[in-house]
Amino acid sequence: MVHQVLFIVFGLICVAGAINLLLQRHPINSALSLVVVMASLALIYLLLGAEFVAAIQVIVYAGAIMVLFVFVIMLLNAGEEERTRGSRVALILGVPGVIILAATVGWLLVTGSGQLGSVTIASSDFGETHAIARLLFKDFLLPFEITSVLILIAIMGAVVLGKRES
């Protein structure tokens, strides 16, 4: 019961934040509504027993990536979004495509939910930091190392792109 109420509350906050992201004209308002979405997603992760993922969601996404977005918006002094015509392909093909996709997925999930079963608030040792670390540094060691190389490349790319040519 508590689980359902909390899920509905945070789920509604999520969706409201995402809709607000689309409706706002000023990028800083969009960025802040995205932060709201991410924070309530972190709370939903806690409901699913994923405490470590929830913590890094807040630290990495809301605390680092979105601060970077806000920083860039402030730095470029981005104003209100201009209304321009936009891409015709996106309007003609994209929007109906997404609506069809959403309808199909929604229909599948609603009709198939009986077979899927349900999710519970997990026991305390599931999603624990120790277990994730063991998995990450044993079974997923190679992908982990590759992502560190990816990060290094990204740092160098960002430095090269951000440097002013003299």
């Binding site: 992201l21 981005a78 997404v98």
Partner: peptide, 29 residues
Amino acid sequence: MVPLSWYLILSAVLFCLGVFGFLLKRNII
């Protein structure tokens, strides 16, 4: 006890809103 499909529907809704934003917004940020 929450059905798994609720979480998946929330995920799908957020994803579709993201696609709409990608198609309709004009500001690169």
